[in-house]
């Protein structure tokens, strides 16, 4: 039992566990919209874009959350704007905007020689090093995103499900796309230092697709994805704490393992159900088929 309680008694790991629960639930919640809008790559892309913003903020001596947040928001708006062109599409828009933004960060690092920022921390994250202020910002973003999803549930559902006709039903698609860009930027900026540029996409996408495998209800999917995200984070942090493995990588590996388990179990269940249906039909044919009388 002490295996479960010990990390809660140590300051840094307690903070990491709280941050993990909040970050996992937040990414899981946002991930539902990302996956259903078929923009799974946006988490990966936007975190790279924000890396550029983080370096630029450092160079310009601006607060990381403010500078990187505005940078991320503008990048998300640019992705929306570019992907509205039918010839381009969301995936290509993400590719162009985010890699250009990432390249700005890399160029700045190589050009400004006195830069003492450690790219490893940004690329791979360090949840065990979360500060109290980082924790409060994460809590604030979690409350903000939760409120947006709760109070704008139906409008967000509409633009996710059927964006082409949303405006005809009184749902201003541009306004909600902008709100979603803000949600995405806030989510990634607040979790970037915990999970890392390269690993954050998995925490956004995996809980939603695992949830999608087990439910056909949008409301249940939101709850399931939040819980799965938080659970993967907590399990990942425990493994990281006891085995001295990088926390971000452990969380991603837990999420990926859960995905494969659920994928196999649901596939086997579906196959069993199909074969049972086949058997039922087969016996019904034998018992209930028309009889032929000769003579």
């Amino acid at each position: 039992m002490h295996y479960l309680t010990d990390p809660w008694h140590v300051g840094f790991s307690r903070h990491a566990l709280i941050a993990g629960i909040l970050a996992g639930a937040l990414c899981g919640l946002v991930g539902v919209y990302v996956v259903l809008r078929r923009m799974s790559y946006i988490g990966h892309g936007l975190s790279h874009a924000i890396f550029g913003g983080a370096v630029a903020s450092y160079v310009a001596n601006i607060n990381f959350y403010l500078g990187a947040g505005i940078w991320g928001f503008v990048s998300a708006l640019l992705i929306n704007g570019v992907s509205r062109r039918r010839q381009i599409g969301a995936d290509a828009a993400i590719g162009v905007v985010t890699t250009a933004s990432f390249a700005i960060g890399v160029a700045l690092i190589s050009h400004v020689h006195h830069l003492t920022v450690n790219p490893d921390a940004a690329l791979f994250g360090n949840i065990l090093g979360v500060s109290i202020s980082g924790l409060y910002i994460l809590l604030g973003v979690f409350v903000f995103v939760g409120a947006v999803v709760f109070f704008r549930y139906r409008q967000l559902l509409f633009i996710t499900f059927d964006p082409e006709v949303a405006d005809a039903y009184g749902v201003n698609s541009k306004r909600y796309d902008t709100l979603f860009a803000l949600v995405m930027a806030a989510t990634i900026v607040s979790t970037l230092q915990l999970l890392g540029v390269t690993l954050i996409a998995a925490i956004i996408v995996v809980p939603a697709i695992v949830g999608r495998l087990v439910t056909d209800s949008f409301g249940k999917l939101l709850v399931a994805s939040m819980l799965i995200g938080a659970l993967c984070s907590v399990i990942g942090i425990y493994i990281s704490y006891y085995n001295d493995v990088a926390s971000g990588a452990t969380i991603v590996l837990v999420a990926a393992t859960l995905f494969f388990v659920v994928f196999v179990v649901t596939a086997l269940t579906a196959r069993r159900r199909l074969s049972r249906l086949g058997e039922d039909h087969g016996s019904a044919d034998i018992g209930g088929g028309p009889s032929v009388h000769v003579g």
Binding site: L36, R154, Q155, L157, F158, T160, F161, D162, A166, Y169, G170, V171, R212, T215, D216, S217, F218, L221
Partner: peptide, 16 residues
């Protein structure tokens, strides 16, 4: 997309 028929119909009032 994970929605039922009733949820689709109720989206007709999404702007309320």
């Amino acid at each position: 997309f994970p929605v039922t028929v009733e949820e689709v119909v109720l989206l007709g009032r999404a702007a309320d």
